[in-house]
């Protein structure tokens, strides 16, 4: 009520410059510049491509994370660490280095990880467990399952075709993974902004009751979002196998928190109903460059963590200001 009498803020001269996506991309370029100055070669084309490759895996895990967070009701998927690892393990064991098994392996990964995600969704909707609890529990279950399946010694090998697809340059030294990521990103953006499914996802995240009243099948949609996150996690594991060649245990663990952070840096609201996948892409790239820069500068792990954390807080502060200006 008090705010009404306060003078209206003048419109910013460059509204896009306040947008999280622009901030994240600008910051990425800035960090590349800083890296190049302090350690020449940091921003060399080949180096950038390998940074983008690392970012692609994070970006794909974070795609699923974006979906469940957009869907609201404290949506979050901590089990992505598990689905990524499981995806890699299933893919490796189905392929065993055979090109013929490439497609069946991919379908197997999608099926299993999709079911895991759907179980998350069922727990969140029908049993009404908090997503944090449900997906953390699922993460634990998958980790146990992985130990049980591999007995600590993972087996499985990527098909040569997959290795080629992911790492071999397709054009001007760009590895095949990047077009795959671009394709998935374009598809997701299209779905979110140009289809009724996308509208329904944003509606669900913005106001679940109103969404139900507007005709959205809210329960089925939410289960679908968690299944989607499971599938994207599995596909990331599948692609990771093509990057590493052999299966490592717990290869997905490193993605759990960064996937959430990438979404938030990209300007997607943790409350749901607002945000974009392009933002998450920018967030994943910024996060990867920042991590790489801190490693390159040989800052000790404690200092690295502090700078990492501080950067996040500063970004959130900037976004908070934007929100205040808008509201």
């Amino acid at each position: 009520m008090i705010g009404l009498t306060a003078s209206l803020p003048t419109a910013p001269r460059f509204p896009w410059a306040r947008h999280p996506i622009s901030i994240a991309f600008l910051l990425s370029i800035l960090l590349l510049g800083v890296g190049e100055t302090l350690s020449p070669g940091f921003a060399a084309p080949g180096q950038i491509l390998s940074l983008l490759t690392v970012a692609a895996f994070l970006g794909l895990v974070a795609a699923g994370q974006t979906l469940v967070i957009l869907g609201g009701r404290e949506g979050i998927d901590l089990s992505v660490g598990g689905t990524v690892s499981l995806g890699a393990l299933i893919a490796g064991n189905l392929m065993q280095g055979s090109d013929a098994m490439l497609l069946p392996a991919l379908l197997g990964v999608i099926l299993v990880c999709g079911i895991i995600g759907a179980i998350n969704g069922l727990g969140v909707t029908l049993v009404r467990l908090p997503p944090l609890v449900m997906t953390l529990g699922m993460y634990g279950v998958i980790q146990g399952l992985l130990v049980l399946l591999t007995r600590g010694r993972p087996s499985g090998k990527a098909a040569p075709l997959l290795l080629d697809l992911i790492t071999a340059p397709v054009f001007a030294g760009i590895p095949g993974l990047l077009p795959v990521w671009a394709l998935i990103a374009a598809l997701l953006t299209l779905i979110l902004t140009r289809t009724s499914l996308g509208y329904a996802i944003y509606a669900l995240g913005s106001n679940e009751l109103a969404a139900r009243f507007a005709g959205v099948p809210t329960v089925a949609l939410r289960i679908g979002l968690y299944a989607g996150s499971g599938i994207l996690g599995g596909i990331t594991g599948f692609l990771l196998l093509g990057y590493t060649g052999t299966v490592f245990v717990g290869v997905g663990d490193q993605y759990v928190l960064p996937s959430i952070i990438a979404v938030v840096i990209g300007g997607t609201s943790l409350a749901g109903g607002a945000g974009s996948y392009l933002g998450t892409v920018a967030g994943a790239i910024l996060l990867t460059i920042l991590q790489s820069l801190l490693t390159t500068l040989a800052i000790d792990p404690a200092g690295r963590q502090m700078i990492f954390g501080a950067t996040l807080l500063v970004l959130m502060l900037l976004y908070g200001r934007r929100q205040a200006l808008r509201g």
Partner: peptide, 20 residues
């Protein structure tokens, strides 16, 4: 409570039901 999708454009608010 049961009508408006806050934060979403007017266009989305108007068209969701007919799309569904």
């Amino acid at each position: 409570r049961v009508g408006v999708f806050a934060g979403r454009p007017v266009f989305e608010n108007l068209t969701l039901s007919i799309l569904l």
